[in-house]
Write a protein that binds this DNA or RNA. Sequence first.
DNA 1: AGAATAAAAGACCTTTATATCTTTTATTTA
DNA 2: TAAATAAAAGATATAAAGGTCTTTTATTCT
Lengths: 143, 143
Amino acid sequence: MLSQKCKYALRTVLFLAIEGDKSCPKGGKDISTTLKIPEAYTGKILQELAKKNIITSVKGPGGGFYLSEDNLKSPIINVIEIIDGLSFFESCGLGLSKCSSEHPCPIHNDFKIAREHLKKVFINKTVLELANEIKTNDFTLVR
Amino acid sequence: MLSQKCKYALRTVLFLAIEGDKSCPKGGKDISTTLKIPEAYTGKILQELAKKNIITSVKGPGGGFYLSEDNLKSPIINVIEIIDGLSFFESCGLGLSKCSSEHPCPIHNDFKIAREHLKKVFINKTVLELANEIKTNDFTLVR
DNA sequence: AGAATAAAAGACCTTTATATCTTTTATTTA
DNA sequence: TAAATAAAAGATATAAAGGTCTTTTATTCT
Ligand code: FES
Ligand code: FES
């Protein structure tokens, strides 16, 4: 459903939301080690997220990445949109050129329910909200 | 979620369930034209499905593919299993090495619901049942 | 100012998914 | 039995995803 890159990106953003801080940003190396994501690839993803203002970067010694107040308010679907786009959430589960209730494919009704359930979650949860849930409910980003 | 190949396969099988018949099997060319699937690729997929006894093939002039009584009784998850495998239905939506309720990722609860909703549908519907729904409820396999 | 640090940028490599082409085998019908 | 038909098999091609490597730029600290 989500690409590997997008899963990496989501975990990265949530990790930064929990661990990063303006006064002490996390470096790419640190992130990749903790989350077990290939180091160079982590860098690429961080770059992309920074360019699109999902995360904030700090260059130079002691530099790294963190989430600004604004960054924290972003719903996680923004991460998905930037990395994968949103086409999944509008596409037919059987690959018809478009998903439509007028000309539905045989799995339309069930697929649409599942798809929209997830979309709603991704739209409604901000990075900050999800980060807090991780802390209080003992969810994990690793393993 | 499902690979392109798997979507092609599902549409192909359902098409054969509706249109094919032991006495007049459908040829690969016919299928690919109707469903707008690349012809050579259709052939490959048909071969794979035939080898795994999801569909039945008839060689020679007038030959093609159809679904036997047995083939029709198969739940559509069998098609998915053969083409894509079932790992999606057991995997973590955030890419953790395994999905577990003991060490859940932050989207575990919602993702699991969506994933299992779909899995249940695929397990419970046989090719025949779905083919009948297509006929009576005016679902489409093309476009 | 110069050295060290870490992100940014861009070229490059590898693997997997998607798709095609060619040759062979089985079957039917004239 | 020869010709025609259509699937089976296998090699090959193309595109996209996943991932690496090298060079450049910005920043900090001495
Ligand atoms: S038409 Fe296939 S999912 Fe809506
Ligand atoms: S642990 Fe991530 S979906 Fe279950």
